[in-house]
Structures are given as structure tokens and as C-alpha cells.
Design a protein around this nucleic acid. Sequence first.
DNA 1: TGTGACATAAAAGTAGTACTTTTAATTCCC
DNA 2: GGGAATTAAAAGTACTACTTTTATGTCACA
Lengths: 233, 233
Amino acid sequence: MTTPAQGLHSHVLATLGLAITAGEYPPGTVLRTDELAQRFDVSRTVVREVVRVLESMHLVESRRRVGVTVLPTASWNVYDPQVIRWRLAGADRPRQLRSLTVLRSAVEPVAAGLAATHATPEQCRELTEQALGMVATSRGRRLEEYLVHDIAFHRVVLNASGNEMFARLGDVVAEVLTGRTHHHVMFEDPDPAAVTLHVQVAEAVRERDAARAEELTRQIAVGALQELDVLAP
Amino acid sequence: MTTPAQGLHSHVLATLGLAITAGEYPPGTVLRTDELAQRFDVSRTVVREVVRVLESMHLVESRRRVGVTVLPTASWNVYDPQVIRWRLAGADRPRQLRSLTVLRSAVEPVAAGLAATHATPEQCRELTEQALGMVATSRGRRLEEYLVHDIAFHRVVLNASGNEMFARLGDVVAEVLTGRTHHHVMFEDPDPAAVTLHVQVAEAVRERDAARAEELTRQIAVGALQELDVLAP
DNA sequence: TGTGACATAAAAGTAGTACTTTTAATTCCC
DNA sequence: GGGAATTAAAAGTACTACTTTTATGTCACA
């Protein structure tokens, strides 16, 4: 119906997850497994497995004699990449983008500082390469190419920090950057100041200057937040 | 066997999840559903639902004709509270505590800064109350009571930030603080400097001084990291 | 009239079985 | 020796029967 889906489970999960995160079922709404089975034309087994997964994401709670209750937003596993993707695809995309950008503004500067002391030569090289790629594609409406380098750059920084919690945010950052690019006026080239900052971060990491890497990344983050303020009223 | 468990599903999930995150099954290990069903003496239905949940946490991957393959640490959903709890209970507790503390050091200062501009009067009051509670219990080996105030304090800050991603880290911080207290030499009272800093953060938030709240929280974080360095070689 | 024990039924939880689909691995032919 | 056809192993799906929990309604008793 909504998603192509290779497998009944994935299809039902995607549909239900999207619907719930989009707020289609307000918190407290009660669903029944066999009603869902009927609605999706699958067996109760499939529905039950889906419900179990949704339960592990704390989107719903299943209780005997009651049914499957939709939980309030506050209890959702908002760090689950799947949940993030659903929310970015749904109604409260703007709020989601904002809260993720704020998270980035907290994490990335610290990650960059750590990267400056932990990055391998290979990672330094990769970082410089991506920064140069950004420079090369920063003019002439080559936003898609620019995006690839931008994502790769931030991913390397997060990985090079040597902290697994930071590293795992790579996907989140990718989603945010992609979302931002695709919802912008596609005519404008990226801010030259931001591009320069990326090059400087690569430099600072290469020169093992943690404080400078952190500060420069903080400036990138500030820029991203301001950009968001302009976009969202 | 290992957990009390109210329900077959929870029991099997807890046992398997703990075993996998503890590294008992190295990445690449293949499990078969009916072998598991036999081992736990439950139906294949139960095992399948458990596998689906583990799959949603990216701990395992299930493929036809192959079996259930354990995935490498790098793909795990390390932000899933359940996964965090398993890992803190298991073998690589020290590494986990460290990476979470680093995450805290990135997030909490920013959260405190935001709290200074977003906190409701009620939250300010609560914050002051908890800080005073920390002062009151900071001497005389009342570590358990102190811990309760400490957790509550940080939870309020994260909630008051107004960012849902930050707010959801409340549980993580609680786990970290609890873990730290319980694995310390229980004779020592908390660092007086840290206690003072908490009181000052509450002050700064109350006075809407974002920069100061952020900076003070950063000092708390630095202290926590140093403490960890002393403990872990 | 209110309250507590009891009965009822609704819905999820569990089990078992039969069948389908995918796909790794083997075999066999060229 | 390589590629195509075959095989079988394991997960995926479905269905059905049964169990357990528990919200709710009922009835008796005070």
C-alpha cells in the first residue's frame, strides 16, 4: 500500500511504524492484533512479530485483555535509526530536524576534538580529501555531489573520535544533511564560510590541534543552527 | 536460568541479548531458531519473536537457509536503553561506562545552556532542591541518598533543555551515575568541588545565565572524566 | 446504597503443525 | 573446469487450538 517491502513483516512494520510516528494514532489509542491482521491481510503471527518490534522501540505497549496501546512520544526510542527515519519522513519533520541539529551541535565539536588526538594518518588523509571535494563542488549548483562529501567528512570525524557512541551518529548526521539539502532552495550554493571551516577542521585535526578542531566545528554547528532558524519560523 | 522473567519472551530475550552483548557469541556466529527453541524449551514462535526484536536492535541478522547471524559490535544500536543495560551488566562494562561518560561530557553542557533559557519556574525550583539535597547528603557516607539527588538533578537539566533527544538521555545518565557509585570505593564521600558546581549550575539556570550554566556543567563533566581515568588504567 | 467477592469474557500469550519460499551447496552435464 | 540444474536446509508464513491474564460487569451481603 505505502511501501514496496520485501516481506510481509517489513511491510506491516513500515506502515504501522510510520503511521504511529506520524501521530496518526494519538497516544492511548488501542489497536487489536487480529483487527490489524485483518486490515493488512496477514496472519496474526506476522502482526505479533511486528508488535513485538514496535514494543522494543517503546512506540506501543501490549497488555493482555486490553490490546496494543500507543505510547506517548516521550517514551519513544528516539535514537533508533528506524524511528528517526520514520519521523523524518512524516509530519513532524521540522521539529525532528531541529532537535537532531541541536544534538549535532553538542556532539560534533567534542568528537572533532577527540578526532584530533585519535585520528589515524589514513583518516587524516580521508578528511582532507573530503574537505577538498567540498571545495571543488561548492560552486555551480553541484549540491548533490557536495552533499556526498559533506556526509563523508562528518562521518570520518565521528569515526575518528574513537568513541562508539559518536561513531553511531554517522547515520543520523547523514539523514540531517540530506534532509537539509533536499528541503532548501536548490538554487543556492553552500555557504562559502562553512566550506572554509571544513577545510580548517581537516587542517586542525591533521596538526593534532584539538582545541582548534573543536572550536571550528562549533562554528560549523552554530552556522547550521542559524540556517535552521532562517528556514523555520 | 539467568533472569526471573515474567513471560517466556522476556526471559529468552534477556538471556540471548545479554549473551550476545557480552560477546559470548562472536560476530559471525550462526544460531538456528529451532535449536534455540529446543535449548530454551519454548516454541519456535517465541524464538522467532525474540529474533525479530534482536534484529531490530541490529544485534543479529536473520537470513533464509543460513540462520541467525550475530552482527559485529559496530552495527549494534548502542543507544537502545536495553542494549546499554545489557552491556553495562556484562563484560565490557568499563569501556561502555567510558564511552557513555564522554557522550555525557558533550551533551550535558549544551543541555544546561539550553535549560538556562528554557527552564520553567517549577524546574528551577526542582533543580535547586536537588542541588541542596546533594549538599545535605554529601558527607557521612550517605552515597545512596546522594545518588538519588544527583540523578534527579541531571534528569531535570536534560528535560529542561527542551530537546527531546537530550531528555531521552536521562536514563543513560542514571545508569552511568549508578554504575559509578556502585563501583567506587564506597568509603569516600563525593568530591566537594563537584557538589559546589551543581549548586552553582542551579543558580546559573535560575538566573538565566546560559553561558555560565554551560561552562559550569563542562567542569562537572571534566571532573567525571578525570575520575574515570584514575579508576581505569 | 455501597462494597467486596465472584464470574465472565475478551484479548494477548503460547504451542504445534503444515506448508511456502529463498538460497547455499551439491551434483551433473557439457 | 565451469556453468546450469537439482536438492535440501532453514527461515518465513499461515492457521488453529489452547492457556493465561485481567478488565469489567454482576450479584450477594452488609
